[in-house]
Design a protein around this nucleic acid. Structure first.
Length: 269
DNA sequence: AGACGTACCTGACCGC
DNA sequence: TGCGGTCAGGTACGTC
């Protein structure tokens, strides 16, 4: 459930479900020290009220009434679902008064959980190194200004450059901006950067409006209803015709920094 | 600085 | 049916 658009949709769903409710019980179903899912991390949250659910990049931030926060990074496959625990990949469950349950399920177990005082939040290592929110005014053409020779795809996936883009929306945004993912970020003109920033904002807004993307791993399960994957122009579409009517290109798949990149080499320069 | 490999995990899918 | 390889929405680390 991992990129910004999916996390944002999840945030809204959780907020509607549980903000203002008191936590009746926190159940650690399966301890994972590496992930931070331990009884110690969740100790003492019983009786606290969930005051707000926020998001920063791909991180979810649960503000609790005792001036602490739970931070959750869903990794590759983590998600919060509104049901009691029971699945074999469930790690913990928050039971709220009034019968609402939130269960964290993560079959690949790359997710992470932290608990810390609100007061120390901005200084927390995972938050401190995040770049601007892509949908905020702080994210602009100048955020991408650089003399670097690294690829533009690698730059926009770098969470310290812009927080929250993942592999799907990086590919889709570059397509929309008609910029090759293989271009060195330092060769982008100011106009290129303006186009790319606009494309990123547009792509994320469109994905959020559609409830995010739901890939095969999750399809048909537990209530996540996003369908932005039906709108992909390039992601996972290698060998198919470029959807632009103006070019005769085919989508290709290449590997950059160990990850699949999809693009149209005719349209994207 | 940055590319690359590796590690962390489980599971789906494909070719043999 | 099984087996090995490859792939997966993320991040961190060491090495070159």
């Amino acid at each position: 459930m991992p990129e910004l658009a999916e996390i944002e949709c999840l945030r809204v769903r959780i907020a509607n479900l549980a903000v203002g409710r008191r936590i009746a019980r926190a159940i650690v179903v399966r301890t994972s020290k590496r992930q931070g899912v331990t009884a110690a991390v969740l100790a003492g949250i019983r009786g606290k009220t969930l005051d707000a659910v926020e998001r920063r990049g791909k991180l979810l931030i649960f503000r609790l009434s005792d001036e602490t926060a739970l931070l959750l990074h869903c990794g590759m496959s983590g998600r919060l679902v509104a049901r009691k625990h029971g699945n074999k990949h469930d790690l913990f469950c928050l039971a709220f008064r009034g019968g609402v349950h939130l269960t964290y399920n993560d079959f690949r177990r790359f997710g992470r959980l932290w608990r810390l005082p609100l007061e120390g939040l901005p200084r927390h290592a995972v938050l401190r190194k995040l770049g601007p929110e892509p949908l905020s005014l702080r994210f602009s053409e100048s955020s991408l200004a650089s003399k670097s020779r690294r690829s533009v795809k690698s730059a926009i996936l770098d969470q310290s450059v812009v927080a929250g883009l993942g592999n799907i929306y990086a590919c889709e945004s570059l397509y929309r901006a008609r910029i090759s993912p293989e271009r060195a970020v330092g060769t982008l003109t100011r106009d290129d950067r303006v186009l790319l920033v606009r494309a990123i904002k547009h792509t994320l807004r469109a994905a959020i409006a559609r409830g995010g993307s739901t890939l095969a791993d999750y399809r048909g399960t537990e209530g996540e209803a996003g369908d932005f994957e039906t709108q992909f122009a390039v992601f996972g579409r290698d060998g198919l015709r470029c959807p632009s009517c103006k070019c005769d290109g085919n989508i290709v798949r290449v590997v950059q920094n160990g990850r699949s990149t999809y693009f149209c080499p005719v349209l994207q320069k």
